[in-house]
C-alpha cells in the first residue's frame, strides 16, 4: 500500500506544483492553539511537520528555539503531542503528519513504545535531527516495519558517495537541507545553487521525493518551486511570536501566511 506521504506527492506532481510542508511546534503557543493551527492550515498545506520540543536543541535557530521554549513552558509532554496528532487525524485522516525532534526524547520513551504511540495516533513519518545515517539504520528499519516513514536528511556537506547510500536506504521522502545553517537562518545560498544540488540528488534516484528546507520564506519560496516539496518552519514560528507580541490571534495570522505561501507556488 502506498503511504499517505507518497500519495500526497503523487497528487502534487499531477497538479505540477511542489508539496507545501509546514513546520510548527506542538504546544506552541498552547496545546489547543497548536491543534487549531494544524486544523486550519491543513487546508493549504500538503504535509504537516510537527515538532516535539527539546530544551537542548543543537541544530535549531532562535525562532524554533523560541517556539519550543513556549511550548515547554506550557508543560507540553510527549503524550500531549500524540494527543494533538490523534485529534487532528480524526478529522483529517489523509493529511500526512510528520513528527520532528531530537533523539533523546525517543530514547527515554523507548523506541518501540514511541513507535507504538506514533501508530496509534496516526503519525506518518519521523525526522530525527540528531540521528544521522548510518547510526539510524536500525531505528529506520523499525519505522519501515511499522509503515512509518523515516525521513533521511542530506546537506550541502554530504559527500556524493554517502548521498548514494542514504538515498538507497531512504523511504518515500528525503529532506535536503539547503545550506550550512541551523533552522531559521537567512538564505545565504542562491536558489540556483540550491536547485543545482537538488538536481544532483534527484539524479541519484529520480523517483524519490525530495524536499528542500531551511531558510525558506515567502520571499524565496517561488524561486524553488521546481522541487518536489518545500518546507517552511521558522517563518511560521516567527509569525506566532510576532502575533503574541502584538496581542493578535496567532492562529488567524498563521493561516494567512500559509495561504500566501501556497499562492506563491501554484
Amino acid at each position: 500500500m502506498k503511504s499517505k506521504i507518497r500519495l500526497t506527492f503523487d497528487k502534487c506532481k499531477k497538479a505540477k506544483r511542489p508539496a507545501l510542508i509546514t513546520y510548527t511546534v506542538a504546544g506552541d503557543n498552547t496545546k489547543n492553539n497548536s491543534l487549531k493551527i494544524l486544523n486550519k492550515i491543513s487546508k493549504h498545506a500538503d504535509i504537516l511537520e510537527l515538532g516535539f520540543p527539546h530544551n537542548t536543541p543543537i541544530a535549531d535557530g532562535g525562532q524554533i528555539q523560541g517556539s519550543s521554549h513556549r511550548a515547554l513552558k506550557n508543560g507540553i509532554k510527549l503524550k500531549d503531542v500524540f494527543q494533538i496528532v490523534k485529534k487532528f487525524k480524526k478529522n483529517n485522516p489523509n493529511k500526512p503528519v510528520i513528527l520532528m525532534g531530537y533523539f533523546n526524547l525517543i530514547y527515554q520513551n523507548g523506541e518501540n513504545n514511541f513507535l507504538k504511540s506514533c501508530k496509534l495516533s496516526g503519525v506518518d513519518g519521523l525526522i530525527i535531527v540528531d540521528l544521522p545515517y548510518p547510526e539510524n539504520k536500525i531505528f529506520a528499519n523499525k519505522c519501515k516495519k511499522k509503515s512509518i516513514n523515516f525521513i533521511q536528511l542530506l546537506s550541502p556537506t554530504t559527500s556524493k558517495e554517502r548521498m548514494k547510500k542514504i538515498v538507497k536506504d531512504s523511504h518515500d521522502m528525503i529532506y535536503y537541507i539547503s545550506m550550512l545553517s541551523t533552522t531559521g537562518g537567512k538564505l545565504k545560498v542562491s536558489p540556483k545553487k540550491i536547485l543545482k544540488n537538488y538536481n544532483i540528488i534527484k539524479r541519484v534516484n529520480p523517483k524519490k521525493n525530495l524536499v528542500i528546507g531551511f531558510g525558506i520564506t515567502d520571499k524565496t519560496i517561488s524561486s524553488l518551486k521546481s522541487a518536489n516539496g518545500l518546507v517552511v518552519g521558522s517563518m511560521l514560528c516567527k509569525t506566532i511570536t510576532n502575533s503574541l507580541k502584538m496581542r493578535q490571534n496567532p492562529v488567524t495570522n498563521l493561516v494567512k501566511v500559509v495561504y500566501s505561501l501556497k499562492r506563491k507556488i501554484i
Binding site: A59, D130, E135, L153, L154, S159
Partner: peptide, 9 residues
C-alpha cells in the same frame, strides 16, 4: 555521534 547531518562531514 548524535549529530545533525551537516556536521557528519
Amino acid at each position: 555521534n548524535f549529530i545533525p547531518e551537516t556536521l557528519k562531514k
